[in-house]
Design a protein around this nucleic acid. Structure first.
Ligand SMILES: NC(=O)c1ccc[n+]([C@@H]2O[C@H](COP(=O)([O-])OP(=O)(O)OC[C@H]3O[C@@H](n4cnc5c(N)ncnc54)[C@H](O)[C@@H]3O)[C@@H](O)[C@H]2O)c1
Ligand SMILES: NC(=O)c1ccc[n+]([C@@H]2O[C@H](COP(=O)([O-])OP(=O)(O)OC[C@H]3O[C@@H](n4cnc5c(N)ncnc54)[C@H](O)[C@@H]3O)[C@@H](O)[C@H]2O)c1
Lengths: 206, 206
DNA sequence: GAAATATTGTTAATTTAATCACAGTTTAGG
DNA sequence: CCTAAACTGTGATTAAATTAACAATATTTC
């Protein structure tokens, strides 16, 4: 099990590496990758050490190989299915955005309680009533949920998610959620991010 | 200057505290606050120690007072003005969402290059052409930008942001941006978050 | 009003993450 | 073929963040 920060950085490296590949770059040095990611060459090498890949000495890392090795670590062979819960402004933006982005992570369903949204199709993904959550999650083997419901229903919905058999949640509501210990949860709070930026802008001024 | 993680947690505590206030709760213990936030009572007390607030012993923290003290630390007295750059799906969602949420952080302008979007008003906020960035930033005293432009224009736009005098950036594009050292930048990469969730779901399975 | 209980604030210890420092390769140039 | 230069991989070290441990203090109970 890799450190969380390392997992994040590997995902980020991979995106840069894919970009490199498109530009026809076949090899990359640790210090080049570092420069692209606000960190140091040592950190990059250490991260890559974690996944047990070694480069051709003096030529840098083979871009294509490194992409594959990162894929072996991060991706599940058969891919994982994802659902978006709450098809409001944010849920719609995310659904539209993700379609076709990652071959190993497919958004294959959305859920809502608003009857005007149910059965609507966004970017090829159908919206189901939340009452059918468990049924669809089981039938379609969905293991990850992206939560974009209003704050006041967040905690109730999260219980339903866990009951339905979801194993990972990416929570965008501003409510910290309690889930069973075998469910992995990542929370992102936009207001917190913005307040953090504001704090550092403020303190830099003085 | 507080540790970054502490700043984040303080912002999160504050939101819970505001919620408590609404529910008529006047005092809160460190372990209660901890429970709401996936962390420990010691961590809460240490964070609060950082900002130099002390409770009434044995009664817990005075909710209202603690909110004010956190405000003194996080907020700027006159508030800070914010602009959203790139009024696509995500930019629109964020703009709509933020309006009225935080009295000390006001989104007061959006920018785009798409002529069909310019001059449109979203939730009371007007969209300006990107070419007027510097002019408006100076006139309206905007210090923070939220970046939601497409990846391929991200790095160019970030240069313009810095030139215009922006001091803090919240970057939602998937491109790591280079900014001047006196500009604070926070980057959030949704794909990375989702891949991280997927990784931990995958490894938990084995 | 003494003892038991609950909670804080803080020092010390521990754990985790990042950085330093350098030996070990490979390649290039003479 | 020898030396210098350029990078990598990793043990050792340092720094940062978290957790444990506990004295100090207020409150309740009897
Ligand atoms: N919009 C943003 O940019 C933004 C930013 C940060 C955080 N958030 C958070 O994301 C969440 C959604 O924000 P939004 O702007 O998209 O809100 P929204 O009101 O546009 O969308 C919410 C959607 O959830 C649906 N919904 C309500 N109750 C539900 C339930 N029990 N189960 C399933 N669906 C349900 C609603 O019908 C609606 O379609 C909120 O919790 C908000 O705090 C949004
Ligand atoms: N939609 C999401 O949920 C989501 C999730 C993660 C990351 N992102 C990132 O956010 C960014 C925007 O995503 P989106 O889905 O809103 O895209 P979008 O295409 O809907 O919106 C992009 C907007 O930016 C405008 N634009 C283009 N070039 C510009 C420039 N030079 N200056 C100002 N505006 C410009 C476009 O006219 C458009 O309005 C992308 O970089 C994407 O990677 C989006």
């Amino acid at each position: 099990m890799l450190p969380e920060r390392t997992v994040e950085r590997l995902s980020e490296y991979r995106r840069s590496l894919l970009q490199c590949l498109e530009e026809g770059k076949t090899h990359i040095f640790s210090h080049e990758l570092a420069e692209l990611h606000h960190n140091t060459a040592v950190q990059v090498r250490r991260d890559i050490m974690f996944i047990g890949y070694t480069s051709m000495q003096r030529k840098g890392y083979d871009v294509r190989e490194l992409i594959n090795v990162i894929g072996d670590i991060l991706d599940s062979e058969q891919g994982l299915n994802v659902a978006v819960i709450g098809v409001g402004n944010l849920g719609r933006a995310i659904t539209t955005y993700f379609i076709g982005k990652r071959s190993k992570l497919n958004i294959i369903a959305t859920f809502d309680v608003d009857t005007t949204k149910i059965d609507r199709v966004i970017s090829g993904v159908k919206c189901y009533p939340l009452s059918r959550l468990k049924e669809i999650v089981e039938k379609e083997d969905i293991s990850i949920a992206i939560m974009t419901v209003p704050a006041d229903s967040a905690s109730e919905v999260s219980t339903q998610l866990v009951d339905s058999g979801i194993k990972g949640v990416l929570n965008f509501t501003t409510v910290p959620l309690q889930v069973a210990p075998d469910v992995y949860m990542d929370e992102y709070d936009m207001i917190t991010s913005l307040e953090k930026v504001a704090y550092f802008v403020k303190t830099a001024r003085t």
